[in-house]
Design a protein around this nucleic acid. Structure first.
Lengths: 258, 258
DNA sequence: GTAATCTGCGTATGACATACGCTGTAATGC
DNA sequence: GCATTACAGCGTATGTCATACGCAGATTAC
């Protein structure tokens, strides 16, 4: 195994939030036994988020879900943001199966992206949580591992591989957010997502009617083909652009060394 | 001009937030004269955000900046979110000059993305504001126009053009957010951004030391070339992947019709 | 057995967005 | 010109929220 060759700081001090997420925080050895576990807190937070959306996830609401007093939660997590981070990591769950032997990098990375999208769609509240930084919690790291594994042997350098994974991940998140916002606006106004989209175009048409917006006007006059799977097509378009761009580089690398 | 051919609903009811942003809300004709303008409110909000970050932008803080009472602000904007939306649109400013005659789509879109990135870097507080939906406010629409204009004549369909613009925009925003978070973490902990990044890798190495993470281990063992412009290279890598992917499609389109 | 540490929780604090209503100002209609 | 209408500014108030603090009791270590 390579890791002994890594300049591995066994004594690296982990920030409390990370130690908490990985179960590395010191367990208390004195005092009364805890009535709850961190897992229960996280599960309760997720239940509230799923049922009532992220704005409902207050410390008091989660405590109520568990039948304890609000301030008890602070015995388990230092801040609410820590709880949210744990909720996200748990809600994401473990990643889809990694790239199989004989499976190309592109199908593997596509599967990875689609599983990522599925998780985000399953838990639309995730998009409202402020991001805490690069992937570091247990499931995040597992997802990162499998994303990187899809790119092994492609000739991409390490920095390029992680940039690629972050690029795909960023696109997936962006797309999931946009469609979730659309669905939420529809639910809030009693419309369908298509109707919400149509209203956007109508507003845009009205606002740009009298100004110098030739490219937008051209866009608005083009046939709006109402294909059934417009959203699926758009998802595939964007992912395809990203993966085509990666493929271009991989092929250029392969051609540069015969 | 094409717009008369658009099924243009002149009587489309604009939501109040949009009407406000475009100066289309009815002006009051009775009552005392206003002591402030909406522009002044927005400018005050931006000043506070720039000086103290987004968490400081409360209605009372902005009112204090203007020397008025908190509740006065609600005579000008219905909600705080409306003020934040206006602040973003104003802070973004007008877009960079559009694609010039003879300028290719790729250099034009690259310039567009880089101007977009510059705006986001100039105003790092923007990333913390919850997004309100697709581009609809005045400057947003101008940016959209110029992004679309860069892609005219490429053979991409309308839906593909706007998807491309959103793809580039999403990547730019994602990248700007990541680097801004890094810079902020550095400032908060008295480190350099490189030091913050190193700590992340150290944490990752520690946490994955004893688990099945071969792809991450491989990544950690690769030469970490400390090139001066690592961040610039990473930005260019990601944008290049996206634009290569777009270029692949444009060339395939051109080849499909001789 | 004593000291130390922890759990659960009640009380409290400061901050925040915004509802409500009062007084005074300015425009409109008759 | 006056009454009515609508608005501006702002003081007061409300409910919600994250979290600090401290108390009493439970549990462990020495």
């Amino acid at each position: 195994m390579d890791s002994p060759d890594v300049e591995l700081p066994e004594n690296v001090e982990l920030p409390e939030s990370i130690a908490l997420a990985w179960g590395l925080r010191n367990r208390p050895s004195r005092g009364p036994k805890r009535s709850l576990s961190l897992t229960q807190l996280v599960a309760a937070g997720i239940r509230v988020a799923q049922a009532e959306g992220l704005p409902a996830v207050s410390m008091s609401r989660v405590a109520s879900e568990l039948g304890v007093a609000t301030m008890s939660l602070y015995r388990y997590v230092p801040t609410k943001q820590d709880l949210l981070d744990l909720m996200i990591d748990t809600a994401f769950g473990p990643p889809a199966p990694p790239r199989a032997p004989g499976e190309g990098w592109r199908p593997a990375l596509t599967r990875w992206a689609e599983a990522n999208l599925a998780a985000l769609r399953r838990e639309p509240w995730i998009r409202h949580v402020p991001l805490s930084g690069p992937p570091i919690n247990p499931n995040q790291v597992r997802w990162l591992e499998y994303g990187l594994a899809a790119l092994r042997g492609t000739g991409l350098r390490g920095a390029e591989r992680i940039s690629t994974v972050m690029l795909v991940s960023g696109y997936t998140r962006s797309w999931a957010n946009t469609t979730a916002d659309l669905a939420e606006a529809a639910a809030r106004t009693g419309q369908t997502p298509d109707e919400v989209g149509q209203h956007y175009w109508q507003h845009l048409a009205r606002l740009t009617a009298s100004g110098p917006y030739p490219a937008i006007h051209e866009l608005l006059t083009e046939a709006d083909d109402e294909e059934e799977d417009y959203y699926d097509a758009e998802w595939r378009f964007g992912l395809g652009r990203v993966l085509d761009g990666v493929e271009t580089l991989i092929q250029a690398r392969a051609a540069a060394q015969p």
